[in-house]
């Protein structure tokens, strides 16, 4: 078993689905026998981005929304590297949506993991691009006016040659399997894990 972990204890909230994502990533990397020195992980800003401190590989904790562009620069400059990006629905679908579409169009050989919990959570629970219409959140106390983004539909219409999946974060076997397939895929791949935010998710059920 290759060690991908740093010696820093994860700081996710107790019960956060990102623990599962963290475990699934390590399993997938290990199953593919990826060396820590040939792997670059780009972390967006957000709850899952804080995973940056829990890995010991080559890694970049990028700017909010820019994990995909930073990853693209790395892959284009050194195609021998295995390059992935990880972020939330805020960073990847909100601030960085333009970059996601561009990466899918280019079909660049990087893998993106998205922890979609339907909210901005590190900033304490505002509406995100996947928040259901009408949901009352801290930034939309009168109800969210926008239609939520279905990223699988969107990306499939952008480029049918890419790998795009959305899975339930709780099904760790399915998550690991898809992470592994995405990493193996030659071309652009993205796996969204659907999550419930243990801290602010209650707003969506109200």
């Amino acid at each position: 078993m290759i060690n991908y972990r740093s010696n820093i204890t994860p700081t996710f909230c107790p019960g956060c689905h990102n623990f599962l994502v963290y475990a699934a990533m390590q399993s997938a990397f290990n199953a593919l026998n990826l060396k820590t020195s040939d792997l670059v992980i780009n972390f967006d800003i957000g709850c899952v981005g804080n995973m940056a401190d829990f890995f010991k590989t080559y890694a970049v904790h990028t700017l909010h929304g820019r994990s995909i562009t930073t990853a693209m620069g790395e892959k284009l400059a050194n195609p021998n590297l295995t390059v992935c990006a990880i972020g939330g629905d805020g960073g990847i679908y909100g601030e960085g949506l333009n970059h996601l579409i561009a990466a899918a169009r280019a079909n660049i050989d990087i893998t993106v993991f998205v922890s979609n919990n339907f909210l901005y959570s590190l900033t304490t629970g505002q509406t995100s691009p996947t928040t259901p219409k009408g949901a009352r959140t801290k930034s939309t106390p009168l109800g969210n006016v926008s239609e939520p983004l279905n990223i699988v539909k969107v990306l499939k219409s952008v480029n049918s040659n890419i790998f795009v999946k959305s899975v339930d974060a709780k099904d760790i076997q399915e998550v690991t399997k898809n992470f592994k397939e995405a990493l193996e895929f030659k071309g652009f791949s993205i796996v969204e894990t659907r999550q419930e935010c243990v801290a602010f998710g209650k707003q969506l059920k109200a």
Binding site: V40, N42, V60, T69, T70, M72, G73, E74, H99
Partner: peptide
């Protein structure tokens, strides 16, 4: 796609 991507890509490349 934009200048933001250009600069962050170049930064990613420089990192490698």
């Amino acid at each position: 796609e934009d200048e933001i991507a250009a600069a962050n890509m170049a930064a990613g490349a420089a990192f490698t």
